[in-house]
Design a protein around this nucleic acid. Structure first.
Lengths: 351, 351
DNA sequence: CTGAAAGCGCTTACAG
DNA sequence: CTGAAAGCGCTTACAG
């Protein structure tokens, strides 16, 4: 529980609008007008008061302004996590910095929330004026947060998307398109025996968008290119899971010549496993990832991948949020971001 | 600039303490007492009012409470960046989530700030009651933020440390110890021709703690183990910089058998360069990193390293901050975190 | 045990 | 162009 401020001995403490008014011999009304750049203030007065403000080192008390104004000037970025540790590998730093920059530019504060919110806590954040809007991460098809906020008519934006999108604003990655293009590229290189390492089954059980759409896209691709299904739903999006998943696939079908993964770390694990089994990537085995590009170059060989910029996505989501707040009339914005094919070293034509 | 809240049509809008008082037939004073768990309220009254609160879905307005209470209940985590893009690779996600979790547990909000603050903007955050305290990242030896806040007597905590530490609270990584142990381990494996890839010269010019101490520790180590100096200050802590830095070192001394880096991504670049030059890590070349462990397992072979947990460090820093805020009398806490030697696959005894 | 009143620091009609 | 007054939603002496 927050206690009082510590700087009781600080000289700047307590310089209020009243002090400024007194010191410059005007009413607080006039000072307020000057603070808020309203018209109808004599230039001479304005200059004099501004000087006093400078001299006293006065800054308007944010809480008081907000109390009067109604808005909190704060946004929240919410990732629903059982434990904050689990976020590692799921949320990239640029995801957070992107939102933070956009918020900063729009003069909003950005609170990063990682917790299991309850419906009550969530509503309370709006009701108690802690936040004006929220950016939702890890949205599942039937997300209770979405249902609740929609019903209560509180402003929010999704990174991802749920099933019923009517009147909802979101930005999401076009994962199906990415999957399609990844397989298309592999097939164009001559690969036919292709393994697929996808999101955890627990994600699919939880009805998380990417997991659902990955499987749908995969089925479509199998049919389109007449491929046999060799795939695993991994337990985590981790190097270790990619490692053992790859070994599993290899055991199932030793004739595999390529693997596509739904995550860069998983691809790193694949390369590790393949190297250990005596394969050489990309000479006699190709690996390709779909996802955010942060570690693409850390891996040797660097990963060919269908990629999005996590920075851009969260930056944009935050702008969507502030736009919505600035203009209630704005219709819902729905953006699907196409991935970019990044040709690097981990793929090669089948010889 | 924040506008009004959007949910004008929301049913929960505007349920105030006055509504609760009216609906339950008591004064707002009594309601306030109940909200704040004060004594001297009849059980019967308490129950009745609590029921009304539930029925009306009332939650106290945060801004109003804070206006009255004086504290903002908000902390800021500040990374001074020219451009938010540059943070990539410098700040790991757990760095942010660690602080966010700790703040959450202590019922504080956590604002993540990435910008070039000016002295004025910085002071204003405190003066205007936007924040109660700040956690400073990327602290340099003579940091203007530190000087200013110290002078103004505003509460803050450093992750890192400056030159004059009197009465200042910080948590920092014992980089010198890490460097010492890294070289000690390499030498114990029989390596004598060891390259060192360290922080950018620009960091040293900016008097950033780690860069300064890295060079000091390095000089000490050279002397202690009677080694020849082969080192480079890289332009960035990146894979690419590690790659070209390694090639440079190899050109300078082809007899090198080991490289130590001050960053994991740099080590990934080293391995890339070595592999391409026909070396095999760890069979005939050892690589070791000092830093945060996020990508240690992504690399093949996985990196032997002296490591810290970025999550733990920022979690602790945040707790230090809230402790300080909760108790003005608390003496300055100064914590130096020792690294852990993580034995993985990228090192081997010289044969 | 309870309430009327003052006040936190600001903004905004309203009246000059 | 300027100011007195009311009010944002709450808490806290103070008085019963």
């Amino acid at each position: 529980m927050p206690k009082r401020k510590l700087n009781s001995s600080n000289e700047n403490r307590g310089v209020t609008i009243t002090d400024v008014a007194k010191a410059s011999g005007v009413s607080i009304t006039t000072v307020s007008r000057i603070l808020n750049n309203k018209e109808y203030v004599a230039d001479e007065t304005r200059d004099r008061v501004n000087l006093t403000i400078q001299q006293l080192g006065f800054v308007a008390h944010t809480q008081a302004r907000r109390l009067r104004g109604g808005a909190s000037g704060t946004l929240a970025l919410h990732y629903p996590a059982e434990s904050p540790h689990q976020i590692r590998g799921l949320v990239e730093t640029p995801y957070i910095t992107g939102a933070a920059s956009a918020a900063g530019e729009k003069e909003y504060f950005l609170n990063f929330l990682i917790s299991q919110l309850t419906p009550d806590t969530l509503l309370n954040m709006y009701r108690s004026n802690q936040i004006d809007g929220m950016i939702l991460l890890q949205v599942c098809m039937d997300d209770w947060r979405v249902n609740l906020l929609r019903e209560s008519n509180y402003p929010f934006v999704m990174i991802g998307r749920c099933a019923n999108l009517e009147d909802l604003t979101f930005i999401d990655l076009d994962f199906e398109d990415a999957l399609l293009k990844a397989f298309e590229y592999m097939v164009s290189l001559g690969h036919q025996e292709i393994g697929f390492l996808t999101y955890p089954q627990s994600w699919r059980d939880a009805q998380l968008g990417p997991a659902i759409r990955a499987m749908k896209g995969y089925e479509y691709v199998l049919h389109k290119y007449d491929l046999q299904p060799y795939f695993r739903e991994l337990e985590f999006n981790s190097v270790e899971a990619g490692f053992s998943g790859t070994n599993d696939l290899l055991r199932e079908n030793p004739k595999l010549t390529a693997i596509i993964t739904a995550n860069h770390s998983v691809a790193a694990g694949s390369i590790k496993a393949l190297t250990l089994q005596g394969y050489s990537v990309p000479e006699n085995f190709s690996v390709m990832a779909v996802g955010f590009g942060e570690i693409a170059n850390v891996v040797t060989p660097s990963l060919t991948a269908l990629e999005w910029s996590s920075y851009e996505v969260s930056y944009q989501a935050t702008i969507l949020m502030t736009d919505m707040l600035a203009n209630e009339e704005l219709p819902a914005q729905q953006i699907l971001v196409k991935p970019t094919l990044m040709l690097r070293q981990s793929t090669q034509a089948l010889t």
